[in-house]
Design a protein around this nucleic acid. Structure first.
Lengths: 224, 224
DNA sequence: TATTTGTCGAGACTGCTAGTCTTGTCAAGC
DNA sequence: GCTTGACAAGACTAGCAGTCTCGACAAATA
């Protein structure tokens, strides 16, 4: 999620409401740029918060994760959390995407069937990993109530949607899909099934399902 | 939702925690069945609560509907709400399904393509009606946090899923689908796309989309 | 070294909500 | 007239997000 939270070693999250580090920059005024004063940010606390959040997200069996719990687990004051993240959702999303693979480039083997099968199977598989799965589920549930978090998640999923759309687009140009195929609808069929089964858990998200889904989408939208 | 909340003129909801009306029945003991004493249930209040809930559900622009607001709008004490429904979610779901068409029998024209197109289009259309749409969205968001409500909603949606599955099953027996077609996956593609677009609102749920989706599902799962 | 600036942990506090409990009232049957 | 149970009103508890305050502490500067 580098586009939403471009954190580096010392940078603050982009979504901060106030950015204390930048108040001295004040463009248009030729204020003397004073690089930094005062105590520095505690990186250990920063890490501890993210770790605690991820840990709680993964452990919580549906029960919502509270900021109090995160702060207590991290051995940190609540204000320290709110100093660096604007809301609970931002912390949770940041914790989840912190270590996630950011360059979601879809496969490009030259054959749409292979690419799509791989993409769907990889998507299903990645979400199933026990560390991620519970955390992602909890996050999605939180997003249902928190519009701010929902927005953050949209930009997160948009990256993956785009990768899939481009994968399909390449295939369509090669004639492996009908010229008038509705790529957006195909994307939604993949992610619709994914989220539906992921959140409700009433059906499998195994490699076999991935293959069936990919193949039926190809056949259903094949060139005449 | 008569299967979840079998209310009639005098019956209490099935999901009640305590059932004051039944404490005197105590089976195994041949207690004298005393039919009823005390003041009767106020049907006007009952209706007012459901109406208020539906009204608030439809009006709320994402903001959660509170029990206080329902009670106040209905001109009713909070305890009167909790006397007849076990939780907020139960009230909301009951309000939404109160007037809904309960016999969700899928169409059966003898041709799968027609049946499926109609079913999908009807599903999309029904959810879009302005009265229902906002209420259903709010309800789904509430269900994300309230496991009890989630369970109630599952039994609600199960009826519709079954209708679709049977529609597909009939078509498969007529040879309009491959013998090994994964009906459950097709059902999930329909409802996956539906809920995905309905909740996120990033793509249309119009008749054209319904037709495309139905046709691609048929082609993608056609008999060889 | 002393001062300033800004972070830290701790925890009190506000505001909101679900759900419970209490109180006094009212209606239906005995 | 008495009992029973529904009723409106509203106080109350418990949990949570987010704010505010406090005294301690660390980095840069004078």
């Amino acid at each position: 999620m580098s586009e939403t939270e471009p954190r580096s070693e010392q940078a603050a999250p982009a979504v901060r409401t106030q950015q204390p580090e930048r108040t001295d920059q004040t463009p248009e005024q030729t204020a003397p740029t004073r690089p930094h004063t005062g105590r520095r940010r505690n990186e250990a606390a920063h890490r501890a918060i993210l770790d605690a959040a991820l840990h709680l997200l993964a452990d919580s069996d549906g029960t919502p994760v509270t900021i109090d719990a995160i702060a207590r687990t991290a051995g940190v004051g609540k204000q320290t959390v709110y100093r660096w993240w604007p809301s609970k959702g931002a912390v949770l999303l940041d914790a989840l995407t912190d270590r996630a693979d950011q360059d979601v480039r879809g496969p490009d083997t030259g054959t749409l069937r292979t690419d799509l099968r791989t993409f769907v199977a990889t998507t299903f598989d990645a979400a199933q990993r026990s560390t991620t799965a519970s955390a992602l589920r909890t996050l999605a549930r939180e997003a249902a109530r928190d519009p701010h978090l929902a927005e953050l998640m949209q930009t997160f999923t948009a990256t993956r949607r785009t990768a899939l759309r481009e994968l399909l687009s390449r295939g369509r140009e090669r004639g492996e899909l009908a010229g008038d195929a509705d790529l957006e609808l195909i994307v939604d069929q993949v992610y619709g099934v994914f989220w539906y089964r992921f959140l409700l858990g009433h059906g499998p998200l195994d490699p076999n399902t991935a293959e069936r889904l990919a193949d039926s989408l190809l056949t259903g939208n094949a060139a005449d």
